[in-house]
Amino acid sequence: MNIQTRQAGRATVIAVFGKVDAMTAPAFETSVSDLIAEGQLCLAIDLGGVEYISSAGLRVILAAAKALKAKDGMLLLANARGPVQEVFEISGFGSVFNLYDSVEAALETAG
């Protein structure tokens, strides 16, 4: 798994690549929680490069969303495709989170 972050207006885009599984989820969690601790209130996670995500990865996303909501922030998810999209749908996360077809569409919401 590889993570790249960039600033886009008031949002921070986190592009994730590779597998988000039980081995890599702790590093993903550290990256996300560090950004929240730094005061970032709008995180957009680009899932376009994610080939696989398990419940360990979903747990990180759920925790981040709750932490941001408690600070009146927001978590946006973009580019879920194929098996990743299916995992979101069957877990019910598709209706819980804001899922966007592209990072650009997600960033429009962030304003």
Partner: peptide
Amino acid sequence: SVEMEQREAGGLGVYF
């Protein structure tokens, strides 16, 4: 089906 605030990640693994 519950809202995000009530969602827990537990149990998803077995569901998968």
